[in-house]
Design a protein around this nucleic acid. Structure first.
Ligand SMILES: [Mn+2]
Ligand SMILES: [Mn+2]
Ligand SMILES: [Zn+2]
Ligand SMILES: [Zn+2]
Lengths: 117, 117
DNA sequence: TAGTATATGCAAATCATTTGCAATTGCGAT
DNA sequence: ATCGCAATTGCAAATGATTTGCATATACTA
């Protein structure tokens, strides 16, 4: 019943905090090759359940994880595949959605397009 | 180079059109047990590439597909898992996002919450 | 109708994620 | 500080979704 603050968990969370952006399980494993992938999977699940990190689905590839300083959304460039992180006035968007009989807890906006650069 | 309008492809598209909502590959295969799952996968890929249908990621489970009469978004109830489909003023939302140096082509809003009812 | 490129089925491969289990370790209670 | 034990970890194997290779079947074109 008790959740332990193990060294491995600290390392995994550190890696996610340092990286500003999303990481796959493999990304994390590359930075921490000593830690088994299974342990990474289990730790990430734990962090997600305890809302320390967020899961993000951005395409077919597989789940991505990120430590979020503040809630934000994602835009993906169809050309270069780069992911842009941006904040938005969620309350205003929520009003525009006009969802009746539904208690909105979280809004996730995913934008597809291309970098103008 | 030529894309054939085969009977199997027609059947698969029909099933998606009739169903109002999302379907998994297994859902489709259950309705069309005679058609091999691989054929369903390949047909769906083709339809997506040709923008006849949309792919939707709504959770860990796996990819979902839907024939969209008109563009819309999705809300998922954390309790009953039911998916609600709703339209929104995308242009207004787009303005709220304030994405600089990015050519927005498509906005996908995924809402998490619970049914009030 | 014949010829050929495209589509299909079946088996096997691949990829991400999960599960079982034995060995290890963190931490609360002595 | 040491003990006892539940929580954690690693390794191997299982799962589940999706993809690939290849031989056969079929749609469309000429
Ligand atoms: Mn982000
Ligand atoms: Mn829909
Ligand atoms: Zn780009
Ligand atoms: Zn519900």
């Amino acid at each position: 019943m008790t959740i332990r603050l193990t060294d491995k968990r600290k390392q995994i969370l550190q890696v996610l905090k340092r990286q500003h952006g999303t990481m796959s399980v493999k990304d994390i494993h590359n930075k921490l090759p000593k830690i088994d992938q299974v342990t990474i999977y289990r730790s990430l699940d734990l962090f997600v359940k305890n809302k320390l990190i967020k899961e993000v689905h951005l395409g077919k590839e597989g789940m991505l994880y990120e430590y979020q300083t503040e809630p934000h959304h994602h835009a993906i460039c169809d050309d270069c595949r780069k992911v842009r992180h941006f904040t938005a006035p969620d309350e205003k968007i929520k009003k525009l959605l006009g969802l009746e009989d539904f208690e909105v807890e979280e809004i996730e906006v995913i934008v597809k397009g291309v970098c103008k650069k």
